[in-house]
C-alpha cells in the first residue's frame, strides 16, 4: 500500500495548501486564518469557537474545517484553542513587502517583543532571521500566539521559529556516519520477559519445538511467571506466535491471568483475614 506523501512525512504540500488559502482579493482585505487540518479526525473546537461563523458548519465531528474568508476577521480565537496547533493567522493586507504571521507556540521560554529569531519552515529548516512583533502570553488551555514579521513571499512557507542563541542542532544524518557498521548480529538476544530474564531466542526455540500457546511457553520458559504477571512479555509472545503463523485467529488464548492483580504480602493478607463473609 502507498500513502500520500503527507501521510508519511506530516508535511503539508502544495496540494494540501491549495485547499486552505483565500483568493487574492480576500487576502488584501485583512488578516485571515489558515487552517492546516487536512485529516478527518473527531475534533470541532474551531468551528464552535468562531463568533463570526467564518468556519463552515460541520456535518459531524470528523468534518474538515473550511473557512469562509469573507467572514474571517483573523481574530485568532480559533488559533488559540486548536488542539492540533494547526491554525495560523496571516496578514498581508498592509502595503509594503512585509506581512505578519501569528503562530501557536507552546515551548519555554516565550520570545520577547522585538527579539530576532530564526524563522523555520514546515520541516523545521532555517529560513531567515525575522523579528517578533507581538506575543499573547496565555497559560492554561489557551495556547500563546507569537507574531512574526515576515516577507510577504514567505508567509505561507514559514510555520515556526527558534532562538538564535541556541546551538546549531545537528541534523540527523550528520550524527555518527562512521559507526554504521554496528555489529547488530553479535548482540545478545532481546529480553522478552524482564522479570525472569527470558530472551527472544528462547521463545522462538520453544515455538519451533511445538509450543503453540502462551501458556505452554510460560510453563517451559517461565516467561510471564514473574511479579509483573506477563504484562511486558505476553504481547511479544503473541506477536511471535502470529509471526510463526500460529495464532492468527481471534480466539487465540491469551494464557492465564491469575489473582491477585497487584503485589500484596502474606502479612497484609493475614491481617485482612477477617473471615466474616
Amino acid at each position: 500500500m502507498s500513502y500520500d506523501k503527507f501521510e508519511q512525512t506530516g508535511l503539508a504540500g502544495p496540494h494540501e495548501m491549495s485547499t486552505c488559502l483565500p483568493s487574492e482579493e480576500q487576502r488584501k482585505k485583512g488578516p485571515y486564518a489558515v487552517i492546516e487540518c487536512f485529516e478527518e479526525i473527531p475534533c470541532n473546537p474551531c468551528v464552535m469557537s468562531c463568533t463570526f461563523d467564518a468556519i463552515l458548519p460541520f456535518e459531524d465531528v470528523n468534518s474538515l474545517p473550511l473557512v469562509d474568508f469573507d467572514k474571517c476577521t483573523g481574530c485568532a480565537v480559533c488559533a488559540g484553542i486548536c488542539p492540533g496547533l494547526a491554525i495560523f493567522i496571516v496578514d498581508e493586507s498592509k502595503p509594503g513587502d512585509f506581512g505578519t504571521l501569528r503562530l501557536p507556540y507552546e515551548y519555554w521560554p516565550l520570545p520577547e517583543k522585538g527579539q530576532t529569531v530564526m524563522a523555520l519552515s514546515r520541516e523545521g529548516g532555517d529560513v531567515e532571521p525575522v523579528e517578533v512583533v507581538a506575543i499573547s502570553n496565555v497559560k492554561g488551555a489557551r495556547t500563546p500566539l507569537v507574531t512574526l514579521r515576515l516577507p510577504k513571499d514567505k508567509l505561507q512557507d514559514i510555520r515556526g521559529f527558534r532562538f538564535l542563541s541556541e546551538e546549531e542542532q545537528a541534523a540527523l544524518k550528520d550524527d555518527t556516519e562512521a559507526e554504521k557498521t554496528a555489529d547488530i548480529e553479535s548482540l545478545e538476544s532481546p529480553i522478552v520477559c524482564r522479570c525472569e530474564g527470558v530472551t527472544l531466542a528462547e521463545i522462538r526455540d520453544l515455538i519451533a519445538a511445538g509450543c503453540h500457546t502462551v501458556e505452554e511457553i510460560k510453563h517451559l520458559s517461565r516467561a510471564g511467571m514473574g511479579p509483573c504477571q506477563g504484562r511486558t512479555c505476553r504481547q511479544i509472545i503473541m506477536g511471535e506466535l502470529m509471526r510463526a503463523g500460529i495464532g492468527k485467529t481471534e480466539d487465540m488464548p491469551p494464557g492465564s491471568f491469575r489473582p491477585p492483580g497487584g503485589t500484596v504480602t502474606l502479612g497484609q493478607l493475614a491481617e485482612g483475614g477477617d473471615s466474616d463473609a
Binding site: 511467571m225 511479579p227 489473582p259 504480602t265 502474606l266 502479612g267
Partner: peptide, 10 residues
C-alpha cells in the same frame, strides 16, 4: 515470611 509478596494463586 510476612514480608513476602504473593505473585499468583491458582
Amino acid at each position: 515470611l510476612a514480608r513476602l509478596k504473593v505473585v499468583r494463586q491458582w
